[in-house]
Structures are given as C-alpha cells and as structure tokens.
Nucleic acid binder design. Structure first.
Lengths: 197, 197
DNA sequence: GTTTTAACTGAACGTGCGTTCATATCAAAC
DNA sequence: GTTTGATATGAACGCACGTTCAGTTAAAAC
C-alpha cells in the first residue's frame, strides 16, 4: 500500500463533491457535464471515476449527506429544546431557517433534483425527508394535546410551515436589509400566530 | 396564400407547447431533447422550428404565458373581492391555491427552470412575478393601515405567505384525503391567524 | 535504489444533442 | 387543372456527452 499519506485522494474527493454541489446548484444536474466538474477541480474527467461510480451516484450522495446532516443537527438541537411544545416549535423554526440558509446549494439541489434520482435513490431521500417532517408534526400534535395549539390538520400544517420556512432561501441574502436573527424572529411570529390556540 | 384554413399549424403549434410543458415539468428543460418533444407530437424534430426559433424561446414563452394568465386571472378576481383587506386576503389565498393546483406543470416549470432562461428572459419573468407579489404586499399594507393586520414586515410576510400557499402543489393530489376547498380553508385559517392584529 | 500501487492522463467508444436546409407533399386558391 | 405556399421530412452539420481503459507518474514502503 503506497501513498496512504500524502495521497491526493483525501483532497480530490472532497473537491469533486464541492465542485459538483456548486455546479449542480447553479446550472442543474442535467446541464452539468463530468468534464465541467473535472475542470473545476483541475483533473481530467476520467479521474472522477476514482471517486464515484457514475454521475447519478455523485448526485445521490450529495443529497443523502445533506439529509443525514439535517437529521443529525435536528437530533442535537431537539435534545436541547426540552419538552414544552411551544419551546420546541420555536427551536424547530429558528433552527430550520439557520440550517437551511447556511447551505443554499445543498437545499436547492435537495428540492430541485429529486426527479433526476433513480427510483431507489429517490425513495431513500424521501424517507429521510419524511423523518424530518415527522418531528414537526409530532410537535404540533403534542401542542394540540396540551391545548397550546389549535391546528385542525397537523399534517397539512407541517407542510405549510416547512414550505414557508424553506422559502427564506429564495430571497434572503447576507448583508441585506435584515439580519438572520431578525428574519428568524419575523418567521417565528408568523408560525406562532398561525398555530396559536 | 394556400391552406390558411385546414392548415395544421393551429393544431401542431399548441400540441408542441403542451408536449414541451409536460416533458419539461417531468424531466427538466435540460434533460428533454427537441426530438423527444417532436416524437410526442408525431413530427420530426425539424418541424418544431416552424413554431419556435429555438428551444430557449419555447421555454420562455411557456413561462411568460403562464405568468400572463396568472396576472390576468388575478386582475379579474381582485375586481370581485371589494376593498376590505380581510376579504381581499381571503380571496387572494383561495385563488392562489386554486389557480396553482390547476396548473401543476406550469407552476413547476416557472419555479424550477428560471436558471435556464437567458438573462433578458429571466428579467421579464421576474418582473411579472414581482407584479403578482406586489398585490399581496399591498393588501397586507392596507390591512395594517386599517388596523386589521399586525405585520411588522409586509415584504417578508408576502414571501412567507406565497411560499406557504405554493407549497400545496408539492403534496396535494386530487382524490386524496382532503378536497381542494377543505385545503383552501385550512390554509386560509393559517394565513388569517398569522397576519391577525 | 528498487518495487509497489494509488492517482491520474489522454485518447477513444458509441450516442445523442440543437439546429439547418434542400426537398417533398398536398390542400386551398384561382 | 394548374399554381401556390404553408407544412413537414429526413439527412446532415459539428459538437459534446458519460464512461472506459491502457498507459504514465510519482510518492511511500522496504
């Protein structure tokens, strides 16, 4: 085994994933060629195949890694938020905005490129997304049971809240009129009122 | 001038636009070839160029026609809604859901394929989208002035409400658990409460 | 200093792309 | 029945695609 240290593989691999992420988000999966990705990294197209079996798997792994990171981050945050439904909902709201704003390319791809996934890869990403949505639905159901929230249909409210929060990514730009924490507060006000008892 | 009536052009033209709409929505603009569109219509690829100068213009005109239809439908609806901010907001909310659910392919394309537009075409679509958003922002500002709404930032609330409403398209399916008018009412409840004074 | 082998090159494979255009078709116009 | 021209064909253009692979490079191992 030669060159286990000093090897380029632990440098080139992440560089390929970063370049693919950026280019897929900018131009779309179908519009980006393996040669473009390779060019961004500074290697020939053939070299990419030391790091991914094919273009489809490269896309899938970017999406799966993003969803894994989202679920891991939520598990860590949820542990800090306690059990009170109102506190958990505020924690979910603020964390969703912050996490998604920090990863615009990943979020864009995770929403836009689902149709370019092979069926089994699509099913896996959908499973992870569902797991994320389920936490919010549970928070809403618990809040209804506790009399804190008036939500006639927790599943629909889950879709509505997540769509509203993810929408921040379409317009927010760092350095704009509002700070991120101001945006968090504006959205939390709307979420809180929308589900209020 | 021969064959001005009985000509195929008034049949083939719409069929091309319908096929392109369907295929762009299913697979994405970049992943659909002119030969695929032609195949769906039952002509050769070259025949498409009697109806569009190029693939890019075909996409742009689908998006522009959709936005024109949206603005025209809003103008007609708004005229019926009167001047009361609460009534106008309810009208906007229900109409947005209904109009968008009836046109899933157009909506999908209008959101996902913006990055495939040439800069001048992108600017035009953005202009039309802005005009649509402006109506909602005006409703919110009028409601705040009248004391009906408590909305600290009408621009952000506009983004939030539209993202939430458009999100219906990602999950609603006709014949499912909820009727469209039930969905309208669930969303209207959330919108009403979120902006309530 | 020789051997080993991970990492990468560069050319090639077959395929499909958007677009053009000379030619064919055929219903309407006269 | 002849002319006209809108409509469509089908072949061709040059180019780029995803992927493969025999060969080259060079750092680590001994």
């Amino acid at each position: 085994m030669a060159r286990t240290q000093g090897s380029h593989s632990d440098i080139t691999g992440p560089r390929i994933r970063r370049a693919a992420l950026r280019l897929f988000a900018r131009h779309g999966f179908a519009a980006v060629s393996m040669r473009q990705i390779a060019g961004e990294v500074g290697v020939q197209a053939g070299a990419l195949y030391n790091y991914t079996p094919d273009k489809q798997t490269l896309l899938f792994e970017l999406m799966r890694d993003h969803m894994d990171a989202l679920l891991a981050a939520r598990a860590a945050e949820a542990a800090r938020a306690g059990r009170d439904p109102m506190a958990r909902l505020e924690n979910f709201t603020r964390h969703h905005i912050r996490f998604h704003i920090e990863r615009p390319d990943e979020v864009f791809i995770a929403y836009m490129e689902l149709r370019n996934l092979a069926p089994e890869n699509f099913a896996e990403i959908e499973r992870l997304r569902h797991a994320y949505e389920d936490e919010l639905e549970t928070i809403l159901r618990n809040g209804v049971a506790a009399g804190d929230f008036a939500v006639p249909d927790p599943r629909v409210a889950t879709y509505a809240v997540i769509a509203m929060l993810t929408g921040v990514n379409t317009w927010y730009r760092a350095g704009g009129r509002l700070s991120l924490s101001e945006v968090e507060t504006l959205y939390w006000d709307m979420v809180r009122k929308a589900v209020a008892a």
